[in-house]
């Protein structure tokens, strides 16, 4: 028996070994990874350069300075038109706060809503649940394009246009790929858990909040992080629905048109804007793998 196991292990190891083809793929991938990394490293280096050094010596460096980062914090001003027609401005810190509120609130809505709806559809097989599921698949396959103008009108009519809380409400949508992720996750949780809690006198809220949510917390965290990062870099939503609450992304897009800004300063602002994403990545990179599986598109 032991001999058999040993042979089996040997076979598996042999099959996973690097072949000449996999070495070629490995080298190509390493070249690709380095090419991908290079622009970011160059940008990091450039953000520490003086304007003169940046212009004269694009690829190399002679002197490095923290001046660009200081200027971003102290001298950077982003002008805005206020809701009452007056003018105002945001500094870098103000833009960061806006970005945080925009990304965190929106990501929370986009994480919790599909989770709740997927749970209800998966564990309560009412006819309405089947209808909602079918509708989600249809909406995912045929979205109505060009409804942005209508969305602006609708948000203006119901009074949530240009409001941060309005943006949060808009993001409480369950349509999308993450519904499938949660649906697959809840499908994998046996109903016995529900039965056990029910026998112990717990209600449906106890089952959902104390049993089911902890069981899908890995998926929720991954979805939240991905949505947070996506919303942190989103500019379309801010431009269209939150014009008087600019975020860092909007400021970065308009950076070169602002007074008293330079390219190294723009890159320094880029580096600062990338910190949240990189921190989340460093902390939760292992989390992403294996936590986002989904079912197929039903016919």
């Amino acid at each position: 028996m032991r001999k058999l196991q040993k042979t089996h292990r040997k076979e598996v190891r042999k099959a996973s070994r690097m072949t000449p083809i996999s070495w070629v793929v490995c080298i190509l991938l390493l070249i690709y990874a380095c090419c991908m990394l290079y622009p970011y490293l160059l940008a990091v280096l450039s953000s520490f350069k003086t304007l003169r050094n940046y212009t004269d010596n694009f690829f190399g460096f002679t002197e490095l300075t923290l001046e660009n980062f200081k200027k971003v914090f102290t001298g950077f001003v982003y002008p805005i038109v206020l809701k009452d027609g007056g003018s105002g401005y945001y500094d870098f810190l103000g833009l960061t706060v806006n970005s945080f509120l925009y990304a965190a609130g929106g990501a929370l809505g986009l994480t919790v809503t599909p989770c709740v709806v997927a749970y209800c559809c998966q564990k309560f097989p009412y006819k309405f649940s089947k209808f909602i599921e079918a509708m989600i698949y249809v909406v995912m396959i045929v979205p109505i394009i060009g409804n942005t103008a209508s969305t602006i009108q609708m948000t203006q009519n119901i009074g949530i246009y240009d409001q941060m809380w309005g943006h949060w409400i808009m993001k409480c949508s369950f349509i999308g790929i993450y519904f499938l992720v949660y649906h697959a996750a809840f499908e994998g949780i046996p109903n016995d858990y529900m039965e056990a809690v029910y026998m112990d006198g717990g209600g449906h809220f106890t089952i959902f909040f104390k049993i089911m949510l902890p069981l899908v917390s890995k998926q929720m965290l991954t979805v939240f992080i991905l949505q947070f990062v996506q919303l942190w870099s989103d500019y379309m939503g801010v431009l269209l629905y939150l014009p008087s609450t600019p975020t860092i992304s909007i400021a970065l897009l308009n950076f070169s048109s602002l007074a008293s800004t330079t390219a190294p300063m723009q890159l320094a602002a880029c580096m600062l804007a990338s910190i949240p994403g990189l921190v989340l990545f460093a902390k939760f990179s292992e989390q992403f793998m294996g936590s986002l599986q989904m079912g197929g598109v039903k016919g």
Binding site: S249, A273, G277, F281
Partner: peptide, 8 residues
């Protein structure tokens, strides 16, 4: 690229 914003 997924973790760094599009405008950056």
């Amino acid at each position: 690229p997924r973790m760094i914003s599009g405008p950056v």
